[in-house]
């Protein structure tokens, strides 16, 4: 029943010339739609996530806000972020965003990951960490434009939301989606979710949210977790959601141009040495010289 490796379309640290099997990619891309405008921040998704995934984070502290635990961790894969925002007229809004992996179409984590198969992307768009392969380098953290993956202190491996790939692969919705009391989290094909999102945006605009919109950032190729925001023109209001997330140019450089350049340099160096040796021959001190020296000092 498990997701077969043939359904993987991207695999970390895999040479482009020897890609993951990807013939079986005729399947719908899935998406989780998070409608922030009807989210009550109840944290059912957090609890259901922990429950399904057998995670139990520490019982922490209250630091003067509702956000608990205080941050994502290897054992908190999704977290409600609360922001109190007053507009120019003094109208208060309590913006509550479910934070967690966005399942980018072009995942920065996967790009950055050096260990083959430690991060994979399935044909349906889910980006999953394969803990068994993870080496704990944390490059995924640097690769992620959303600051999502976390390294566990227990086993030094990176973790994040799997979009409940174990549920999705048997035809169920993710645990957070199922449990969401208000229907703020939905799940379906990406096409359907975008359609639903656009309906929600129209409804919100009708209620006076002129800036309502869909957050499906194209800088990372779109995401498989899509937000409906009341203020899509100001995503930073939602606990610093990046306006135009992209994989950092440093990561692009490192995983992009540097590789061929380095490969060429290696070839050039090795070839140079080879041809030099073959061409010039060994650089030997003539025996005569040595004898002469020995004589001199004898």
């Amino acid at each position: 029943m498990s997701m077969q490796s043939q359904d993987i379309i991207k695999r970390s640290a895999t040479n482009v010339l020897t890609p993951a099997p990807r013939a079986r990619d005729h399947q719908a891309e899935v998406a989780k739609l998070i409608d922030v405008s009807i989210c009550i921040g109840c944290k059912a998704c957090q609890v259901a996530c922990n429950e399904w995934n057998d995670l139990r984070d520490e019982v922490g502290h209250n630091v003067g806000v509702y956000d608990n635990p205080a941050d994502l961790s290897a054992e908190t894969w999704t977290l409600m972020r609360f922001d109190e925002v007053e507009d120019e007229s003094g109208k208060l809004e309590w913006l509550i965003r479910k934070d967690g992996c966005m399942h980018c179409a072009d995942p920065g984590c996967l790009k950055a990951c050096p260990q083959p198969g430690a991060i994979i992307q399935y044909a349906n768009g889910i980006v999953d960490f394969q803990s068994d392969h993870c080496i704990g380098c944390g490059y995924c953290i640097a690769g992620c434009p959303f600051d999502v993956p976390r390294i566990s202190k227990k086993d030094n491996k990176a973790y994040k939301c799997t979009l409940c790939v174990d549920r999705v692969s048997v035809g169920q919705e993710p645990a957070c989606v199922k449990t969401c009391p208000t229907g703020a989290i939905n799940f379906g094909s990406k096409q359907d979710m975008l359609h639903q999102a656009s309906e929600r945006v129209t409804e919100l605009q009708g209620r006076g949210f002129a800036g309502a919109g869909i957050y499906d950032p194209q800088g990372v190729g779109g995401t498989h977790v899509v937000y409906v925001l009341q203020h899509a023109d100001k995503p930073h209001l939602y606990h610093k959601l990046p306006t135009d997330p992209r994989i950092s140019s440093a990561i692009h450089g490192w995983k992009g141009w540097l590789k061929p350049v380095a490969a060429v340099a290696f070839f050039a160096t090795l070839a140079g040495t080879l041809f030099h040796y073959v061409g010039v021959g060994p650089n030997e001190v003539e025996e005569a010289d040595e004898k002469h020296e020995e004589d001199t000092h004898a």
């Binding site: 029943m1 490796s5 040479n15 198969g117 174990d166 290696f266 070839f267």
Partner: peptide, 23 residues
């Protein structure tokens, strides 16, 4: 090795990757 790799002859070392079993 480097040459082979660049030409795409690297041994496929993908072990069967599986998501977590449905419990």
């Amino acid at each position: 090795t480097a040459t082979a790799a660049s030409l795409g002859f690297a041994p496929g070392m993908a072990q069967a990757t599986q998501s977590r079993q449905y419990k």
